[in-house]
Every structure is written in C-alpha cells, then in structure tokens.
Amino acid sequence: MAIDKDQKILSLLRRPETRNYGFQLLVDTYKERVYSIVRRMVISHDDADDIVQEVFVRVWENVDGFREESSLYTWIYRISVNESLRFLKSKRLKLFLPMMDASTHLEKLVDDPQHFTGNQIERKLQKAILKLPDKQRMVFNMRYYEGFTYEEISEMLGTSVGALKASYHLAVKKIEKYIE
C-alpha cells in the first residue's frame, strides 16, 4: 500500500541515522512517476531530467518542513507540477515566446522520433494536448495518463474538484475536436 510505504519513508527521513536511506527509498519509489508527469509536460528528455533532479533536490531541502497535512505522494507530485509549470514559464520568458509559439516549439519536438514515438493519430493526439493551456494540459495528463482521481489532483493543484472537472471536460472536448 502506497500510504504505508510513505509512512515508512517519512519515519526513516525523520531519524538522522536513517535519513539518507529514507531519501534513497523515496527517490526509488517516485522517480519514474515524477519523470512521467514532467516529461509529458516538457516533451524533451533532457529538460525532464533536469526538472526531475530539481524536484528531488527540493524534496530533500524541504522535507523537514513537511507537516503531513497532505500525503507524501501528493506533496511530491505537487512539487513536480510546480517545477514543470515554472520551467515552461521561464523558458517562454527566456525566449520571449508567446504561449502559441511555445506550443509550436513543443509540437516540433513531437515530430522528432528522438522525443516521441507513435503513429500518425497518436502524434496528432500529442499535438492536440500541446495546444491546451499549461494548467489544463497538466490536469488532462494527470487524469488521462496518470489515472489520478479529481480529489488527488485537487490536492496537488490546489484547485476545487468542480473546477477540475470543468477543465478536464473542456480539454477532452478540445482534443476531440482537433483530432476529428
């Protein structure tokens, strides 16, 4: 059970003599899922790798302040979400790109087999997803690919369940329309 494992990780992290082992266990438990969340947002492996490392650095730096008001895994995924959105925003600012040009830039990566492999319709789906605004794209990915419940996503993004349902609904409709 994930929550039991989280409790074990936290108790290891709280004791100085087992702190490093606890962190290693945490990284082993979450690295693939965090990577998946981040990669779908930034498309490029190199960028994803950089962000995932940053996520775990932040977890390490802030875990003492983690008050267990939310579960460990939602806290880690929230950091992943924030880091991904922050990266996209800063990339846009660095390159002076408006939202649409940034989306076009990511779509080009989807055309490159180094970054994405799939048939024509799968590629079209990815491009449709990339046309969504960042936060809506995140909601879509969390639900469609990662299988999180609205309640879990709500905890991660700090948005109400109703707003998430509306956002997801709109996202699916837009994607359907694009790939028609």
Binding site: I43, D49, E122, E176
Partner: peptide
C-alpha cells in the same frame, strides 16, 4: 468523452527514455 477518446487513440504513443536512465539516476542526483 474520455472513453470515446481512449477507444479512438488509446494512450497515444510513447516518450522514449534513454537506456539505463533510471538505473543511473540516483548517482547523478
């Protein structure tokens, strides 16, 4: 709507990960 989308395009391709990436991740971190 989600089910209809899944039936049409499934999970929609993969993002390739370099071989051994996760195995060497902890060291790089």
């Amino acid at each position: 709507l989600e089910n209809s989308l899944r039936q049409r395009v499934g999970m929609g391709g993969t993002f390739p990960v370099p071989e051994g990436y996760f195995e060497s991740f902890n060291e790089r971190l």
